[in-house]
Design a protein around this nucleic acid. Structure first.
Lengths: 168, 168
DNA sequence: ACCTCTTTGACCTTTTCTGACCTTCATTAT
DNA sequence: ATAATGAAGGTCAGAAAAGGTCAAAGAGGT
């Protein structure tokens, strides 16, 4: 097992043990504990504690600096989301996307405000791609699928599947 | 926790305890209480009790001098979001964006799950632009500002302002 | 041999803390 | 009245204490 895996496991253990969903680390301290350079900690966080795996990370520099990791609690049914991520696949058009999202609210898996966020993100994405250049429809569909999957994974609590936009 | 944080917490406690919204400090006295140099107090006030966090600070030099801190009433939700949309402006880098989002949760304007959605959307956006081609940093910043503003407006309940990515 | 993931180290940015020096104001002595 | 004094608070630059970034080297698997 790689060092990165050990550090990941250690941080997760801390999260489990913490009564709250939040822990506070010191990069220096952690690096010393594992006998590695501090930037190794950044690597672990960058690759393992991402938003789409349900983590929020904050940090502060300077004296008394820290890294705070928050695991967002997820009172939702994982298998439902997993299913939906499968349905999305590599690409998805606007209509199908809207259909899926509306199913999520009907089944009370996400709140109305959360739905609003998801829909806004999708429509903003279309506008952004419009402005970025002249791309064929299928790229919109791949990007939309990617974003939607990231969003769903993030609040599903699942460990975030593969998701790599290979064809874009 | 850093000394500055302790001093900040102490001043906030005084504000909570004071029946009115105003307290009066003596810089010297405070510095002595925390065993630091007086200018440390200025540092804390300059960095923590700023107008955009809802504080007004007055002071008087000379014998019988003082520092008066006034906590102004918390802004309404609409006003808060409007303010934030202004702060975002035409473009925003990753760090500033994270800072703003963290303020939203600290002030309880959005839930942790909502925050996770916003953070996921922002990081997915970066990845999508990466895949779409080779764009200069400023385009990321403009697209990020656009998306963030859309998301905030969507859940602010407000009328949603203008938001047009003119420079992208 | 190649590709991906990991590990390292050099260099950068942000935040905090301190101390030397400056300004303002009330009081007191002339 | 006026000048001197001493008691505040203010400013600023530099040192120290974190954490961040990036590119290159190393390891492991196919």
């Amino acid at each position: 097992m790689s060092l990165a895996n050990h550090i990941e496991a250690y941080i997760k253990k801390l999260l489990m043990e913490a009564s709250s969903e939040v822990i506070r680390l010191q990069r220096r301290e952690l690096a010393r504990r594992f006998g590695c350079v501090p930037s190794q900690i950044n690597y672990v966080i960058r690759t393992r504690f991402t938003p789409d795996r349900g983590y929020i990370v904050e940090s502060q520099r300077g004296g008394g600096g820290y890294i705070r990791i928050i695991k967002v609690g997820v009172p939702t049914k994982e298998c439902f989301f997993e299913n939906m991520v499968n349905e999305i696949g590599e690409a998805i058009d606007r209509t199908r996307a809207k259909g899926l999202i509306s199913r999520l609210t009907n089944d009370k898996f996400i709140s109305l405000r959360e739905r609003l966020l998801v829909e806004s993100a999708l429509s903003a994405l279309d506008e952004i791609i419009d402005e970025l250049g002249d791309f064929p429809e299928y790229k919109y569909n791949i990007a939309r699928a990617f974003l939607l999957k990231k969003l769903l994974c993030s609040i599903s609590g699942g460990e975030g599947e593969d998701n790599d936009m290979s064809e874009l």
